[in-house]
Design a protein around this nucleic acid. Structure first.
Lengths: 168, 168
DNA sequence: GTTTATAATGAGAACCATTCTCATGTCAAC
DNA sequence: GTTGACATGAGAATGGTTCTCATTATAAAC
């Protein structure tokens, strides 16, 4: 559950936090921004919603509902789903479709940083890729090449499918 | 339901078939290949499975189960789901995740041709993009730039999210 | 500090896409 | 035409997600 995000091309993974040491707390400015967005939709930033944001911020990858419930057992399932929906409506959280039958949730990109996804075919896990300038350049070119005049492009998804380190 | 696939960059959409004229029949060679793949998994190419392949081949975009059932009402729902599963196992059909809660199904790329997807945020429809060489070049570069040493890449997904012609 | 209005919570029921069950139908080989 | 194996159809079961409603927490007004 420690924050680990792939830096492609480097080959050296970010070292995981030592066992027993909690991941660093979420930037207070991010919390303020979340509170602001909830306020815009007339919602409160309650302790449980705060807990959800913490869990997602510290995971460094999109989480399924079972994973979320495991890391904060004080949440009842219905409340967790309802609050995720609230956070999505406020533009704080994004739903990502993975491989299995569970949806996956992560913080919106403008809170967590722009990134893409690695999807593991065997275990279904999804991890983040923090893009290099070279990757972003290539993707910008791809979007331009793909965008016809018949479709208004708002965003793009780029995902790598394969098998992750644990599954090899 | 007529076969229409976007050719990006051209700006001129493929004209739809006149109303009342059926879409062209599926290439017999493709049917033979499907039969072969089913035979490999010891499955028969029944008329209902043939109907499913026809529907998917002629739609030119990934279809939801309700859409499939609407275009061939002779299929019972359970049989349709079971046969789609059989076809997926035989490597004939691929499941695509769209926006809504319905899964979407399409023929495998080696039967329908390599392509990417446009996902409409308002109506949820998914249409195919037949890639230009320029797009493919950019994507190849992107995959190379993204592939670190820690993840074995098997394939990649590239999707454009926005609003389609009908929804603007 | 108490009251009051409103929103949030929790347990469980409801919903719905998908899968499973089982009785029946169909096909191919002998 | 008998036999055996697979395919089909109707409906039940499954499971992720959403809804309901009674209870609790919160913020503002007094």
């Amino acid at each position: 559950m420690a924050a680990t995000r792939h830096q492609p091309g480097s080959g050296s993974a970010t070292p995981a936090a030592p066992v027993g040491i909690a991941a660093p707390p979420v930037d207070p400015a991010a919390h303020r921004e979340v509170a602001l967005r909830l306020a815009r939709t007339e919602q409160r930033y309650t302790p449980l919603r705060r807990a959800l944001v913490e869990v997602m911020a510290q995971s460094g990858r999109p989480l399924t509902m079972p994973e979320i419930l495991r890391s904060s057992p004080e949440l009842s399932q219905s409340t967790a789903y309802r609050n995720i929906a609230t956070l999505i409506e406020a533009g704080v959280v994004r739903r990502v479709s993975g491989t299995g039958d569970h949806g996956r949730f992560e913080l919106a990109e403008d809170l967590s940083g722009h990134h893409h996804h690695l999807v593991c075919l065997s275990c279904g896990k999804v991890s983040d890729i923090v893009p290099t300038p070279r990757l972003e350049r290539a993707l910008r070119e791809a979007v331009e090449a793909a965008a016809g005049s018949t479709f208004a492009v708002i965003e793009h998804r780029f995902e790598l499918i394969g098998s992750c380190t644990d599954c090899r």
